[in-house]
Structure formats: structure tokens, C-alpha cells
């Protein structure tokens, strides 16, 4: 087994008296699709916020490629190769799909205060945008306003923007939330394609998706990771059944 690309070591996070994450330990191996599941309120979103820099952990280390990223700002974490999507669709609604992706790609090329070049002539940027459009299957919607996309298309766009910085590790926070069966299947296929050669950490409620998509699954209950393993191992794990699946059955 290779060294973990993302590693949480004894991570705590509390808001005042509320201990949301307690002593979480998690290793994500390069190239795997790793899912985090757990009942509502287990702290999954907080865990993501900690990894992506929205929150700083109260205690513990978060290693990305062996370097501690705990407490770094989101933009800095992003620069080091970890990108995330949001639970709520977080796009630029009033501009075209193409523009959405271009805004995301320009950052990677450090085009920020540039007012002497035409954006239309940034060949590399535009090629990358076209590439992303193909990947997320939105090429023929390129000139549509993002606000006019269907819900699943908006989620695809969101994922496309996450990919724009060409990250090693991608965090997807409930990408299938609110989707129909068809849309879920479609998005699962999309995720499989785009995470080829990258590492994925995903939070998802749809168990059929989780068990078919993930190589390994971690179970988070009351801020603690109580088990990590392959889908089969998780299915057979007694503690998981008791704490999580059992709860669902009851």
C-alpha cells in the first residue's frame, strides 16, 4: 500500500461546547474513490470543511502529500492540489457555462489582474475549457447561461469547476442530492470518468451509489470514524450495522 495522499490524524473540531469531530483518523490512498458515510449530523460536512480549509481543526493534523494543511486558507489548500464541490450549487448563474469554466481555469494560470490581453485569445485557457466541457458533457450547452441549466447539469458544471485547477484530490459533497434516479446514474458515470487518475473523497447519502462507486468506505458516527474498509467489509462490519445500518433498519 502506498503512502496516503490525504491523511487525517487525531483531528478534533469543536464549536464552543459542541464537539462535532472527535479524534477522526482517516487515510485516503492515491487513486482510490473513497466515500464517507454516516447518519445525519455525524459531522460529514464539517469533516469536508476541515479538509478544504473552510474551518481550522481545534486539534490534530491534516496531511496532504505528507504536508500539514490544517488551518490553511481554502485558496491555499486549493493551490496545493485539493479541490472541492459544494453541497449547494455554487456557480456563476448569470454568465454562460463557458464563462463559468473559464473563470475557474484562469486562476490556475494565474490570470487575475490582467487587463492587456484578450480573454478570447488565451489559447491554453480556452482549450482547457473546451476539454472540461467535453469531460462534463456540456459542450453543446457552452453558450447557455448557467442559471438556465437543468439541476443535474448545474451539478456537472459545479464538478467541472472543481476539476479546473487540475487537482490531485477531489472532494465532492453530496453531488447527487436532490437528483432523480436517471440523473443519479448519469452523474455517477460522470464522476467515474472524471476521477480517472485522481483521488476522490465523496460524501453521499445514496447507498447504492456509494457501494458501487467507492473502492473504500469510511463510516463517521458522532464525529468519529468507526470503520474503514471495502464495501464488503463495511457491509459485514458489526459496529457499522449497530451504529448506522441498524439505525436505518429500525
Amino acid at each position: 500500500m502506498s503512502d496516503p495522499i490525504l491523511s487525517l490524524q487525531h483531528v478534533h473540531k469543536s464549536f464552543g461546547e459542541a464537539h462535532i469531530i472527535r479524534d477522526a483518523n482517516l487515510d485516503v490512498i492515491p487513486g482510490e474513490r473513497h466515500a464517507v458515510i454516516g447518519p445525519n449530523g455525524a459531522g460529514k460536512s464539517t469533516l469536508f470543511h476541515l479538509c478544504s480549509g473552510q474551518f481550522a481543526p481545534s486539534e490534530g493534523k491534516i496531511l496532504l502529500n505528507g504536508k500539514n494543511i490544517a488551518g490553511l486558507k481554502p485558496a491555499e489548500v486549493n493551490r496545493r492540489g485539493l479541490a472541492r464541490s459544494f453541497q449547494i450549487t455554487n456557480i456563476f448563474p448569470g454568465v454562460t457555462v463557458f464563462e463559468n469554466l473559464r473563470l475557474a481555469v484562469m486562476r490556475k494560470h494565474n490570470l487575475q489582474f490582467v487587463f492587456w490581453r484578450s480573454a478570447a485569445r488565451l489559447r491554453v485557457v480556452n482549450e482547457e475549457v473546451d476539454d472540461l466541457l467535453t469531460k462534463i458533457r456540456l459542450t453543446d450547452r457552452a453558450q447557455t447561461l448557467a442559471s438556465q441549466l437543468s439541476y443535474s447539469e448545474q451539478r456537472s458544471l459545479e464538478i467541472g469547476m472543481t476539476l479546473a485547477s487540475d487537482p490531485q484530490v477531489i472532494l465532492l459533497d453530496e453531488p447527487m442530492a436532490g437528483m432523480s434516479h436517471e440523473e443519479t446514474d448519469y452523474t455517477a458515470g460522470l464522476i467515474r470518468e472524471i476521477t480517472e487518475g485522481r483521488t476522490l473523497l465523496i460524501v453521499e447519502h445514496d447507498m447504492s451509489v456509494v457501494f458501487s462507486l467507492a473502492h473504500r468506505i469510511s463510516v463517521l458516527v458522532y464525529g468519529e470514524i468507526i470503520a474503514t474498509g471495502t464495501p464488503e467489509e463495511i457491509r459485514g462490519n458489526a459496529r457499522v450495522k449497530e451504529a448506522y445500518l441498524g439505525e436505518e433498519a429500525a
Binding site: 489582474f113 490582467v114 487587463f115
Partner: peptide, 8 residues
């Protein structure tokens, strides 16, 4: 320009 696009 890129800056103009970022305004949007």
C-alpha cells in the same frame, strides 16, 4: 480581458 471577465 481576464480582469473584465472576473468583474462578471
Amino acid at each position: 480581458t481576464p480582469l473584465g471577465r472576473l468583474a462578471l
